[in-house]
Design a protein around this nucleic acid. Structure first.
Lengths: 346, 346
DNA sequence: GTGAAAGCGCTAACAC
DNA sequence: GTGTTAGCGCTTTCAC
C-alpha cells in the first residue's frame, strides 16, 4: 500500500507542504500552474491524505455520526426506517468524501448520555444526525448539545424545536389522504390510531380529522379504533370496524402494519379490496408492497431528510461560519396510491 | 465540553504521560497504586482520549469497517440481512470501545476497488468485515488485501477461501431440513432453486439432494423448479408443482421470498397449509413471521458471524501478533420450525 | 501567491 | 515500574 505523505507530494512538486495542503483542501490563493503541478504529483504518488492527521490538526473528523434508537428492540419492522436513514446520510457523505459512523443506542439505558458524549469526544465527528424518536428526547439532545458538536434533528411531525431540524408534514399529508378517500366517494372513513408514545403517529390522527373537516364530513368517534402499531392490533380493529352495524367503506390506519392487519381481517371476512373496502396505511414500509393487494400509503421522505441533514452538517464544517443553527426545514411526504384503495361501493 | 488531554491527567496524577497512556491502554507494568491515582485523575478531569491523536500515532483507528453490497439495488428484502450484519458488528465494537464505519458499495461500479482503497487509506480502520456476496468477489478482496489492512470474509456456504473467513453450514443444514420433512412422513419433497449467481443458495440445492440421499429417497428432477429468489418466481413455481399430475406434499424453497410465493399459490388453489402441504423456506427473513401460516425456515447466524469477525479483528489489532490469518470458522445455522410444516397428509 | 515553524494529543522506542 | 524523546501527517498562524 502506497503510504505517501504530504511531504512526498511537496517534494515531487517542488513546493511547500502548505501549498499541497491548499490544493488538497481547495483553498484559494494558489496559482493555477502550481495547482496543476501539485495535482500531477498527487496523481503520480497516489496520495490520499491521512484522515487522522487531518483530524488531529483540525479538531474534527471528516465524519458524520448517525444516531438512532437501536432497532433490535423494535424487531424488524423498523429495519426499513433505519436503512433509509443510512441511505440518505450515506448519499450526502459519499458526495463529499465524508464517512459515516452509525451509533444506534437504547434510550432506556441510563448512561446513554455519557455513552454518546464519549463517542463524540473520541471520534469528533463533523456533525451528528439525530433520528426520531431520539431527536425528541431531551436527555439525548442535551447530551449531544453539551459537547458543542453541530447536530441536526430529524423529527417527522414535530415542529417546536428551536435548533436546526428537519421535519415532514405528517399532519397535512394525512389530511390529504383522507381527502383522497373522500374524492373516491367514501363517506364512512374509519381511522385506526397508533401507539400513543409515537408523536408523529398521533399527528396523523389530527390530520385525519382535518381532512374530514375540510371535506365537510362529520367526525364520528365510533369510526375510530385504538391500535398499538402492530399487525395484530390492526387485524383486531379491522374485525371490530367491519362487523359493526354500519361498517366503513374505507379504513385509514396510522401505519402500514396495522393496515396489513385490516387487509387480513377483510380477507377472512370475505370482503373484497378495493371493491368493497378501501384500505390505506402510512410509512410505505416493505410490507406495503408485499401485501395483496399492494397498499396505498404515505411515503415519508426519510432518506431525503437524512441526506439534507448530513449535507447541512458537512456544509457547516466547511464554511465554518454558516451556522444558522436554528433553521427549520419541512420536506413533504407523498401519497403512494396503490391497489388497496378505489371508488366507494354502490 | 471538557477537553482535557493526557498532559492534564499526568500533571494531576503527578506522573508522566507515558504512565497515563499505559493505564488507559491497560498495559502491564504499572504499580496498582499509581494506576489508582491515574484513574482518579481521569475520573476527575473527565478525560477521554482523543482518537485522532491515537490513530495518528498508532497508525490505525479504533474502528471496524463493515463492507457490503449496497442493498438499495436489491430493494428492501435484504434489509434484514444488512441489519443483522450491523447488529453483530456493533455488538463486538461496543464491548471493546471501537466504533463502526459502514461502507455499502456497488459491486458493478468499475472504480469500487479504488474507492475502497481510498476509504481505507483515509480512515485506517483496525480491520474490515466483508460480507457476502462481496466476500466472494476477487476484485473486492484483492483491493482490500492490497492495503494491508486485516480483514475477515463472511461467506455463508463457501469453504474454499484461503484467508481468515467465517462461514455457515448451508449445505448440511439444508440436508437437515430435508430430513426433517422426511421425518414428518413426506416422500415427495420438491425444491425450488434460487438465483444461480448466489453461491450459498446453490449449496442449499446440494444439501437438499444430500438430505434425500441420506433418507434413501430417490431424487426426482421433475420435483425441482428453477426460481430466481423472487416472491413471484416462487408463486409461479408453486403453481407448476401443485398443478402437476403427482404434486409434492412438501416444498422446500431456497429462500423465504419464494416460499412465501408458494404459500400464496397454495392459498389460491385452496390447498391448506400445513394440513395438505408443508412449505419450508430459508433465511428467516422478516417475511417468515409476517406470512400466514408462519414459515418454517433456516436461520443463518449472520449476526453472530459478523460479531465473531469483528471480535477477531479487534483482537488482532490489540495483540498485534496473533494473526492466524488463514483460519476458518464454521458457525452452524439452525432450523426454525414454525407453522408451515406438519405431518404428511394421508 | 507561497512558505517556515509550531503545534494538535497521542504512541513507540528506548532509556533508567 | 516509570519517564524521556521523538515523531505520526497534517492544519494553523503568521511572515514574506
Amino acid at each position: 500500500m502506497s503510504k505517501s505523505t504530504i511531504n512526498h507530494v511537496a517534494q515531487l512538486a517542488g513546493v511547500s507542504i502548505k501549498t499541497v495542503s491548499r490544493v488538497v483542501n481547495n483553498e484559494p490563493n494558489v496559482h493555477p500552474r502550481t495547482r496543476a503541478k501539485v495535482e500531477q504529483a498527487i496523481e503520480k504518488l497516489n496520495y490520499v491524505p491521512n484522515q487522522s492527521a487531518r483530524n488531529l490538526a483540525s479538531h474534527h473528523a471528516q465524519m458524520i455520526g448517525l444516531v438512532y434508537e437501536d432497532p433490535s428492540i423494535y424487531q424488524l419492522p423498523s429495519a426499513g426506517y433505519v436503512l433509509r436513514l443510512q441511505e440518505g446520510t450515506l448519499r450526502a457523505c459519499r458526495a463529499s468524501h465524508f464517512e459515516l459512523l452509525i451509533h444506534p443506542c437504547n434510550y432506556h439505558n441510563p448512561t446513554v448520555g455519557e455513552e454518546l458524549k464519549a463517542v463524540i469526544q473520541q471520534v469528533r465527528p463533523a456533525g451528528l444526525v439525530i433520528a426520531a424518536p431520539l431527536s425528541n428526547m431531551p436527555k439525548i439532545v442535551r447530551a449531544i448539545a453539551e459537547t458543542g458538536t453541530p447536530y441536526v434533528r430529524l423529527s417527522p411531525g414535530s415542529r417546536s424545536a428551536k435548533d436546526f431540524y428537519l421535519a415532514t408534514n405528517d399532519r397535512e399529508v394525512s389530511a390529504e389522504m383522507t381527502q383522497h378517500l373522500v374524492t373516491l366517494g367514501h363517506r364512512r372513513i374509519a381511522f385506526i390510531t397508533g401507539h400513543p408514545d409515537h408523536r408523529a403517529v398521533s399527528l396523523r390522527f389530527e390530520g385525519y380529522k382535518d381532512g374530514l373537516a375540510q371535506s365537510g364530513i362529520k367526525f364520528r368517534p365510533e369510526l375510530v379504533e385504538a391500535g398499538d402499531n402492530s399487525f395484530l392490533s390492526g387485524e383486531e380493529s379491522g374485525y371490530r370496524l367491519l362487523q359493526g352495524k354500519t361498517p366503513p367503506t374505507a379504513i385509514f390506519a396510522a401505519n402500514d402494519d396495522m393496515a396489513a392487519g385490516v387487509i387480513r381481517a377483510a380477507d377472512r371476512l370475505k370482503i373484497r379490496i378495493p371493491d368493497e373496502l378501501s384500505v390505506a396505511g402510512c410509512d410505505d414500509s416493505a410490507l406495503a408492497q408485499q401485501v395483496y393487494p399492494a397498499l396505498t400509503t404515505i411515503r415519508q421522505p426519510i432518506s431525503k431528510m437524512a441526506e439534507q441533514a448530513a449535507l447541512a452538517l458537512i456544509d457547516k464544517s466547511r464554511n465554518r461560519q454558516s451556522a444558522e443553527s436554528s433553521e427549520t426545514r419541512i420536506i413533504p411526504s407523498a401519497l403512494k396510491i396503490r391497489d388497496s384503495t378505489g371508488p366507494a361501493p354502490g
